Simulated scan of single mutants.
Amino acid sequence: MIPYGRQDINQADIDAVVEVLRSDFLTQGPAVPAFEKAVATYCGVQHAVAVNSATSALHIACLALGVGKGDIVWTTPITFVASANCALYCGATVDFVDIDPPTYNLSVERLAEKLGEAEKYGKLPKVVIPVHLCGQSCDMAGISALGQQYGFKIIEDASHAIGGRYNDEPIGNCRHSDITVFSFHPVKIITTGEGGMALTNNVELAKRMRLLRSHGITSDEADMHPRPPEELWNYQQIALGFNYRMTDIHAALGLSQMQRLDEFVAKRHAIAKRYNRMLSSLPILTPWQHAVSYSSYHLYVIRLQLNKINKTQRQIYEAIYAEGILVNLHYIPIYRQPYYEKTGFSAGYCPQAEQYYSEAISIPMYPGLTEAKQDHVLNVLRKVITS
C-alpha cells in the first residue's frame, strides 16, 4: 500500500520524545514553549500558541477576534470542514467564496464581488478565513487590502503550509493577517502526532488565545479578580475556555521535526518536479504554481481532463485505489456536506469549486516516497487513464 501522505520519523525524533518521557514533565513543561519559540522564530512572528489540533487553533482564533452569535465568517468551500466549523462553534454563521481556477484557493475577484453585494445588505463578514490549499499561499496582499476596505479580520488557515513562502517571506509571519494557523497532523509537513498552533503579532490576541486553550484559567495576579486577603487564590477562571493544550510529549516531537522542515519541503518539491515531468503527456492538469508562491506541497492534486478520458472520476479513483495506491480527494465542497445542506446550501453555489471537485484526485506526496514508489504510482495512473 502507498498512502497519499505519511509522516517521516527518525531516531532523533524518537530520542526527543523518550527524553520527555523520562523527564519530570509530560504535559506542561519546557518543550511546549521551546516549540512555540522555534516556530515563531522560523516564521518571523512575535507570538505562537501551541494547541492540541489546528481545529482548536481555528476555534480560539475566532473567539479571540470576538466571533459570536450574529456574526458572519466567510471561507473557501474547498478545504477540510474545520475551516468552517470553527465559526459555528462560536455561534456565528458561515458563507463561502468560490475558488480561483488556477490555484484552487479562495478567489480575490469573487471575494471582492461578494463583499460589494454584502455591503448593500449590511451582511459583511466579521472574519474571512483564506486557506492555503496544498501549501500554496492565497493572494494575501489582495485579501488584506479588501480587509482594510471592508473592515473584516483575517485568519490564515495555513494548516497545509508551514515551510512555504509568499512574496519570499515565510508563511506564518502574519504580515497580511491577524492570526495564522498551522496543523501538525501526521500527514502534514511536520508532525507532533496531533497538534496545531496559532501565530500572531498582536500581544492581546496571543494572551487571549493562551487563556482560552487552558480552561480560561490564569495564575497571573495582574489579571486575577480581587478577593479577601486571607483567602488563598493561586489561580482563577476568568473566561470560559477549553482543554486545548499541547503536551510536552507532542511538542518534543514537533521541536525535533522543525530541524528537518526545510529538508522535507525540498524533498516534496523534488517529487512534484518529477511528477510534473512524467505526467506531462497524460490528459490531466498538474498543480499550477504562482510566481510569488513557494508551496510546501502538502498535497499534489491532479485534475482529470475527463473530456479526453473514457472513464469517470470515480472509476479512475477506484481503479487506482484497487492497485494499492491510496489516493484521496481534497476536498468535497463543504456546503455539499449533509450537515451544511440542512442549513440551506445546495449544489451549484460555487461553480468553480464544484468543477474542481468533479475532476480532482490527490496522488501520493510525502518525503519518504522513493523513486521506485513514484514510478509505481505513475505507471498505475498511466495504465488506468489510458486503458
Rank of each mutant, 00 (worst) to 15 (best):
residue 57 A to T: 14
residue 57 A to S: 14
residue 57 A to D: 15
residue 58 L to W: 03
residue 58 L to H: 04
residue 59 H to G: 03
residue 60 I to W: 10
residue 61 A to D: 13
residue 61 A to K: 03
residue 61 A to E: 14
residue 63 L to G: 01
residue 64 A to C: 08
residue 65 L to H: 07
residue 68 G to P: 09
residue 68 G to T: 09
residue 70 G to I: 11
residue 71 D to S: 08
residue 73 V to F: 08
residue 74 W to C: 00
residue 76 T to N: 01
residue 78 I to F: 06
residue 80 F to P: 13
residue 81 V to G: 07
residue 81 V to N: 12
residue 82 A to I: 03
residue 86 C to A: 09
residue 87 A to E: 10
residue 87 A to Y: 03
residue 87 A to W: 04
residue 89 Y to E: 15
residue 89 Y to N: 10
residue 90 C to R: 00
residue 91 G to N: 03
residue 91 G to I: 05
residue 91 G to Q: 02
residue 92 A to K: 00
residue 93 T to V: 11
residue 93 T to A: 09
residue 94 V to R: 00
residue 94 V to Q: 02
residue 95 D to F: 02
residue 96 F to M: 00
residue 100 D to M: 06
residue 101 P to F: 05
residue 101 P to W: 05
residue 105 N to W: 08
residue 107 S to W: 14
residue 108 V to Q: 03
residue 109 E to I: 07
residue 109 E to W: 05
residue 110 R to T: 12
residue 110 R to K: 14
residue 111 L to I: 12
residue 111 L to N: 11
residue 112 A to F: 03
residue 112 A to D: 15
residue 112 A to R: 05
residue 113 E to A: 05
residue 115 L to Q: 05
residue 116 G to I: 11
residue 117 E to Q: 10
residue 119 E to H: 02
residue 119 E to P: 04
residue 119 E to Q: 08
residue 120 K to L: 15
residue 121 Y to R: 05
